[in-house]
Every structure is written in structure tokens, then in C-alpha cells.
């Protein structure tokens, strides 16, 4: 779990983009940890959301994940 969380944060920090689809996170994690299962990655994402590292972001119709503090993460006023 900790490895997966680390991989997620590393990916989110190093990417040029600031918002990610879950699928992109999944692919990035599986590149580092090939046997990581989708459910485990989802649980790790949820844990990172709950501790405030990641945030959800809505495009209006689909939901993305972002790193808190990178890009537009607060109210888009």
C-alpha cells in the first residue's frame, strides 16, 4: 500500500499535467509495480484523498485526481 501511494505521488509530481484520470494513475503505478491491482490502487488513492495529499477535481462530467497545491485546486473563481 505504501509503495503504491509513493508511486502515485511520484507520478503526480513528475507529470507535466496537473489533473489525472484514474486510468492514467493506474497505468503509471503498474509501470513501477507491475502486480499492483486496480482495487489496491483505488484504495491508495482514497487514502491519499483522505489525508489531503490528493484532491478530486471535476471537469463537470468526469472526475479526475490532482495533487493538492499543483495547478488549479481550489475554487476556480
Amino acid at each position: 500500500m505504501e509503495d503504491i501511494k509513493k508511486a502515485i505521488v511520484e507520478f503526480a509530481e513528475s507529470s507535466k499535467k496537473t489533473k489525472f484520470y484514474f486510468k492514467d494513475i493506474e497505468k503509471a503505478v503498474q509501470k513501477v509495480i507491475p502486480d499492483a491491482k486496480m482495487r489496491e490502487i483505488k484504495k491508495a488513492c482514497t487514502a491519499l484523498i483522505n489525508d489531503g495529499t490528493l484532491i478530486y477535481f471535476s471537469t463537470g462530467s468526469s472526475t479526475m485526481y490532482g495533487l493538492k497545491g499543483r495547478g488549479m485546486t481550489e475554487d476556480p473563481e
Binding site: Y56, F57, S58, T59, G60, T63, M72, D75, P76
Partner: peptide
Amino acid sequence: WKHGGIVG
């Protein structure tokens, strides 16, 4: 209207 940002 513009939408998005906040999800929950």
C-alpha cells in the same frame, strides 16, 4: 454557466 472544479 461554467461548471467543474468542486466535486463533492
